[in-house]
Amino acid sequence: MWLSLTLYVLYALTMWRVFVKAGYAGILALIPIVNWIFLVKIAGLSGWLALLYLIPFVNAIFAIVVAVKEGANFGKGGLFSFFLLWMLPFIGHLIIGFGSATYRKV
């Protein structure tokens, strides 16, 4: 239980930092479903497209697209985005949130 709680708090802090770097209020990262909308906006897409997360099979493809676009906006390449923002988001968002990456909308 403590490990799960610790991992959740760590991920919440990293997402908070990513949202702040992108110019959004960090508290939005803690609100379920709302964080999807703003993560899609950070990727440079319309917030309405977050509804695609609700469609089975489409959500996996859309999550990859969002991860790659989000990584590009933080100056990261496609491999980093695929492996560390889509497959291992705990690590990818930790690197973006607390690293030297800066947000620039491409």
Rank of each mutant, 00 (worst) to 15 (best):
V66E: 00
S81H: 03
N35S: 11
E70F: 06
L54R: 07
A50E: 01
F62I: 08
G44H: 11
A72W: 03
L85W: 00
L10N: 06
L30R: 08
L13Q: 06
W36Q: 08
A12G: 12
I55P: 01
K76R: 15
F83N: 09
Y11N: 14
T102E: 15
G44W: 07
L94Y: 12
I96D: 03
L49H: 05
G75L: 08
A72F: 02
L28G: 05
L39R: 06
S100I: 04
A29Q: 00
S4K: 13
V58S: 11
A25W: 10
T14D: 04
V106N: 12
N73E: 05
L13E: 03
N73K: 06
L51E: 05
M15A: 12
L39A: 13
L84R: 01
W86S: 09
A67H: 00
A50I: 04
K76P: 00
G99Q: 08
F38N: 01
I37T: 10
P32G: 11
A63P: 00
S81L: 03
W48H: 12
P56M: 12
K41Y: 02
H93M: 10
L13C: 15
I61C: 12
F38T: 02
K69W: 07
I91W: 09
F57T: 13
V66N: 02
L10F: 13
S81A: 13
P56L: 13
E70H: 09
S4T: 14
R17W: 04
A50D: 05
L54S: 11
V9N: 12
L28R: 08
L28E: 02
A12W: 03
S4H: 10
M1T: 15
V65F: 08
A43P: 00
G23Y: 05
L39K: 07
T14A: 14
A101Y: 02
N73T: 04
T14S: 15
E70K: 04
W86H: 11
A63G: 15
W48G: 15
F90Y: 15
L85S: 02
V34D: 04
K76G: 01
F80I: 05
G23F: 07
V34L: 15
F83T: 11
K76L: 06
L13P: 00
I95N: 02
F90N: 08
R17N: 13
L52S: 04
W2S: 15
K105F: 04
V34I: 15
T14K: 00
A22F: 03
A29M: 06
A25H: 11
K21L: 11
L28Q: 06
I37G: 07
F80Y: 12
A72M: 09
K76T: 03
S100Q: 13
W36A: 05
G97W: 01
V106P: 05
R104V: 14
A25P: 03
L30F: 15
N73L: 07
S81Q: 04
L51C: 10
P56G: 11
A72Y: 03
L49N: 05
T102M: 13
V20L: 10
I33S: 08
A12I: 09
E70A: 14
L94Q: 07
L45F: 15
F57D: 07
L30H: 10
A101K: 06
K21M: 09
P56V: 10
L79H: 05
P56C: 10
V68N: 03
V18C: 05
Y24D: 05
A67W: 00
A72R: 12
V68G: 02
L10W: 11
V9W: 11
N35V: 08
T6Y: 11
G23W: 05
I27L: 13
G47C: 09
